[in-house]
């Protein structure tokens, strides 16, 4: 499979995200298109990852876990980066939109990160001989995940919406410090974990399947954040009696 196929799908998804942001009328449809595309691609990823891609040189078929483990962790990083960006944006200019986006991205990131770490643990058993090792990458990833779990706990324990938004933005930025530490942990310290995988660090066929996995999970990341954002906005509205999301704007006289 040429890498151009998942690249084209990635481009289509990027267009969908842009249209979703720019043209509000398309919002009820585009997330469904993305989710449906994600489901089809996930089914194909099962085939591509387990049967199409060649076995890894040393790990053989166990190496096929790469195509789901790495994209899951990438999604967690993307979501957490989005959280940091929203936290900075909120502190610079207070907005309920950035606060809701920060909340949704943190929860989605925790989901992807937790599943990714669980996959890594399963992968460690046949390759390292243990389910878990207190390795720099694993420790830093655990700290990163726990800091975002703490972020979500802080949000749920704080009653006042404005105070919650400000405090969680500060905690979001602090949690963001763990992102580069986690990412570079395999290079900064001696680690059992291999260095970062990318589409350039593996065989061309494996790279295209890895890219396919990335686009597949991006197709899920987009609707997850959109739908979780709607939940966060609805809660804000209920808490503060804000005008509804789709409220018609009063026309200028």
């Amino acid at each position: 499979m040429p890498a151009s196929i998942p690249l084209l799908l990635l481009l289509a998804l990027a267009v969908m995200v842009v249209v979703h942001v720019v043209v509000p009328k398309t919002r009820p449809i585009l997330w469904k298109v993305s989710a449906a595309l994600g489901l089809v691609m996930l089914g194909l990823l099962m085939y591509l990852g387990m049967f199409y891609a060649p076995p890894e040189a040393f790990m053989s078929n166990v190496g096929r876990i790469l195509y789901v483990h790495v994209p899951y962790i990438w999604m967690a990083f993307i979501a957490f980066l989005m959280n940091v960006g929203c936290a900075f944006a909120y502190l610079m200019k207070k907005s309920w939109v950035t606060d809701a986006l920060a909340e949704s991205s943190a929860e989605v990131g925790v989901l992807f990160g937790a599943v990714g770490v669980a996959m890594g643990s399963i992968w460690a058993r046949p390759t390292w001989g243990v389910w878990w090792d207190w390795d720099p990458r694993l420790i830093s990833t655990t700290v990163m995940l726990l800091s975002y779990v703490g972020y979500l706990a802080l949000r749920s324990f704080t009653e006042d919406p404005e105070r919650r938004a400000t405090w969680s933005a500060a905690v979001g930025i602090l949690s963001g410090v763990s992102l580069p530490i986690t990412y570079y942990s395999v290079r900064w310290w001696n680690s059992l974990h291999q260095v970062q995988s990318s589409t350039a660090s593996v065989d061309k066929t494996m790279g295209s399947v890895l890219l396919w996995g990335l686009v597949t999970l991006l197709c899920f990341l987009f609707p997850f954040i959109v739908k979780r954002y709607e939940i966060a906005r609805a809660r804000q509205t209920a808490a503060m009696e804000l005008p509804p999301l789709e409220a018609p704007r009063p026309e200028a006289a």
């Binding site: 790990m59 166990v62 789901v68 996959m119």
Partner: peptide
């Protein structure tokens, strides 16, 4: 190289879904 290990692969893909 590691032989077998398909059960781990299946477990991870199931977890992904």
């Amino acid at each position: 190289v590691i032989q077998g290990g398909w059960e781990y692969v299946y477990a991870c893909y199931a977890l992904a879904v």
